[in-house]
Amino acid sequence: MATCDLSGRKVLITGGARGLGLKMAETVATQGASVVIADLDAETGAASAAALAEAGHQAAFVHLDVTDDASWEAAMPDVLASLGGLDVVVNNAGIEITELFVDLDPASVRKIMDVNVLGTMLGIKHAFRAMRPEGPAGAGGAVVNIASVAATIAFPGIGAYSASKSAIDRLTRVAAAESGRLGYGVRVNAVCPGLVPNAMGGQLANDTANLGLFGSPDEAVGAVISLTPSGRLATEQDIANGVAFLASDDSAFVNGVSLSVDGGMGM
């Protein structure tokens, strides 16, 4: 695991109860940060935070629906109280629904856009409100959004997901420009992960095979690897390392960019 010094950093990670979000929480905690895991799944989220605390890290859980502004309003005081401030917000919560265009369900598209795009935008909103000079944290900081290699390639079956992640790439740049113009002192960047063989990645491989786009899930995975110069899938640790870098002072002059952690797939 690469290391960045995050000693004393106060970090909120949405969608942190499991999978990639949990690996981010474990990584920043190991590198010295205090962390709040925010998630809809209260049982799993609380258990994940408790496990981090039992391992000797400063960790807590808050219940959060990233699509609901009122939920953000209710959660942020608890986040600030638990952490004693706020330095980093990682907008990781996201969903993927695989569909062919000929079978497109408008409700699925709206759900993806609500969670991935609106959820990220509300995360930026409340990060800015907390970390700008007049906010309750008031010392600036960093926002790290989670986009995807799907923002830069054309992979069949994920039209709505790709659109949502392309939107995150663009809104990251707009948010960085606003923060700079208004003197908030908050850097805004994104990480674009390659395909990770976790629950979401495995489901994508199964779904694309079931839709007839590939002969089998293994063939779908092979197609991704064949497009990746590094010759393998990403690991959760690869992605978490990118998040830690953008949360740290090692990236102090990195702002408004999307960092590809995809083995070159999206180049």
Rank of each mutant, 00 (worst) to 15 (best):
M1D: 08
M1I: 03
A2T: 14
C4N: 14
I13H: 05
I13W: 02
A17S: 13
R18K: 15
G19Q: 10
G19N: 13
K23M: 11
A25I: 09
E26G: 01
A29S: 15
A29E: 10
T30D: 15
G32T: 12
I37E: 06
D39G: 07
D39C: 05
L40S: 12
G45R: 01
L52C: 07
G56A: 10
V62L: 01
H63V: 04
L64S: 05
L64N: 08
V66P: 05
A74C: 03
A75G: 09
A75W: 06
A81Q: 13
A81C: 00
S82G: 03
L83I: 07
L83D: 02
L86K: 02
L86C: 02
V88Y: 06
V89T: 04
A93P: 06
G94Q: 08
E96L: 13
I97Q: 11
E99R: 12
L104F: 15
D105N: 14
A107V: 10
A107P: 01
K111F: 00
I112D: 03
V115P: 03
V117T: 11
T120N: 11
G123Y: 07
H126I: 01
A130K: 11
E134G: 13
G135M: 08
G138I: 06
A139D: 14
A139C: 13
G141P: 02
G157E: 09
A163V: 04
A163N: 00
K165M: 12
L171T: 10
V174T: 13
Y184Q: 08
R187N: 05
V191M: 14
L195E: 00
P197F: 13
N198I: 00
G202L: 11
Q203T: 09
A205I: 00
N206I: 00
L211N: 11
G212V: 12
G212A: 08
F214E: 03
F214M: 04
D218P: 08
A220E: 07
G222R: 11
V224Q: 08
T228M: 02
P229K: 14
R232A: 15
D238R: 11
I239W: 10
A240T: 10
V243H: 11
F245Q: 04
F245A: 03
A247L: 07
D250C: 04
V254Y: 02
D262N: 01
G263T: 00
G266Y: 05
M267P: 00
